[in-house]
C-alpha cells in the first residue's frame, strides 16, 4: 500500500470517491448520480493531464499511468455502452462506478508514481494509440465479464434475465474486440520499427495473443452453439482473467523464476 499525499494522489482519490458515490446513489438518485459521474470524469481528466504535465510525455508508460488511464476511460465508455445496451441506466451507472473504483485502486494505492523518463524504445508515435486501444478494449471486456458473471449468478438462482445478461456481454465484446484487434495490430507495427520484427513470441505478446484468441473462441462458440449461454458467460469471464494476467504479467512473472522478459 502506498498512499500518495500530493496533488496527483488527491485527484485520484477524489475520482475514486466520486465513482463510489455514483455506485451508491445510482438507484435512488439517478439524476444526481449522473451529474456526479460527469464531474468525476472531469477530475480523472485533471489527474491525467496533471500527470502528463509532470512527466512531459503521454502518461502510458508504466503500471501507475496505465491504471490512471483506465480510470479516465470509464465515463466515455459508459456513454457509449448506454447507447448500445438496453440495460437500465441506473444499473449501468452502478457497474461503471464499481469498475472505476477497482481500476483506480492500483493507481491510488499499489503502484508508485515516481516520474520516469521515456526510454528510447517507447519513443514512437504509435505507442500512445497502441496502449489506448488496449485500455479501451479492456474496459469493454471488463464490463462484459461483469454482465457474464451476473448472468451466471442469476441463472444459478433460476432467475429469468439471464438472456439479456449474456446478450449485453456479447454486445460489449463485439465493441471491444475490434479495439483489441487494433491494439494487437498497432503493437506489431511498432514492433517492426523498434525491433525489426512484427512478432517476437515473448511472454507478454503471447499472453495478449491468448486474450485475443479466447474472444475469437467466444465468438465462434456463440456461432456454433447459439443457445449455450452458460458456456458463453464462462468464456467471457476467462477472457477477463487472461486480460488481467496479460496486464500484470511482468509483475506476476516474478512468481515464475527463470522467465526472461525485457519489459520488466
Amino acid at each position: 500500500m502506498i498512499i500518495k499525499p500530493d496533488i496527483q494522489g488527491y485527484l485520484i482519490y477524489s475520482t475514486m470517491l466520486g465513482y463510489l458515490t455514483v455506485l451508491l446513489m445510482a438507484l435512488k438518485y439517478p439524476k444526481q448520480a449522473k451529474v456526479l459521474f460527469v464531474s468525476s470524469f472531469l477530475v480523472s481528466s485533471a489527474a491525467l493531464i496533471y500527470r502528463w504535465s509532470v512527466v512531459g510525455h503521454l502518461p502510458m508508460q508504466n503500471m501507475f499511468e496505465v491504471f490512471l488511464f483506465l480510470g479516465f476511460c470509464i465515463w466515455p465508455i459508459h456513454i457509449f455502452s448506454k447507447k448500445i445496451l438496453r440495460t437500465n441506466h441506473s444499473v449501468l451507472m452502478m457497474i461503471d462506478g464499481a469498475i472505476g473504483v477497482v481500476v483506480l485502486f492500483p493507481a491510488g494505492f499499489i503502484f508508485n508514481h515516481h516520474p520516469q523518463f521515456l526510454p528510447p524504445a517507447l519513443q514512437y508515435w504509435l505507442f500512445g494509440p497502441h496502449v489506448a486501444a488496449y485500455m479501451l478494449a479492456y474496459i469493454f471486456m471488463t464490463k462484459a465479464a461483469v454482465f457474464a458473471l451476473g448472468g451466471l449468478i442469476l441463472s444459478s438462482r433460476n432467475m429469468p434475465s439471464n438472456n439479456t445478461m449474456a446478450d449485453s456481454g456479447y454486445q460489449l465484446i463485439a465493441a471491444g474486440f475490434p479495439l483489441l484487434t487494433l491494439g494487437l495490430f498497432l503493437g506489431s507495427i511498432w514492433g517492426k520499427y523498434a525491433w525489426g520484427d512484427w512478432w517476437g513470441w515473448d511472454p507478454k505478446e503471447l499472453w495478449s495473443l491468448v486474450c485475443w484468441l479466447v474472444y475469437v473462441l467466444y465468438l465462434h462458440v456463440r456461432f456454433a452453439w447459439p443457445r449455450r449461454q452458460q458456456i458463453h458467460n464462462v468464456l467471457n469471464i476467462i477472457g477477463l482473467v487472461c486480460i488481467i494476467i496479460t496486464l500484470l504479467w511482468v509483475n506476476l512473472s516474478k512468481l515464475f523464476p527463470g522467465l526472461h522478459n525485457y519489459t520488466s
Binding site: G200, D202, P203
Partner: peptide, 28 residues
C-alpha cells in the same frame, strides 16, 4: 467444420499459454 474451428482455436490457446511460460527464445 464448426467443431474443427473451435478445436483449432482451443489448441492454439493452449500452445500460446505454454509458449508464454517458455520464454521468447524457446517459444519462437
Amino acid at each position: 467444420i464448426n467443431l474443427m474451428i473451435l478445436l483449432l482455436l482451443a489448441v492454439f490457446i493452449i500452445f500460446s499459454v505454454n509458449g508464454a511460460f517458455m520464454g521468447a527464445r524457446r517459444a519462437q
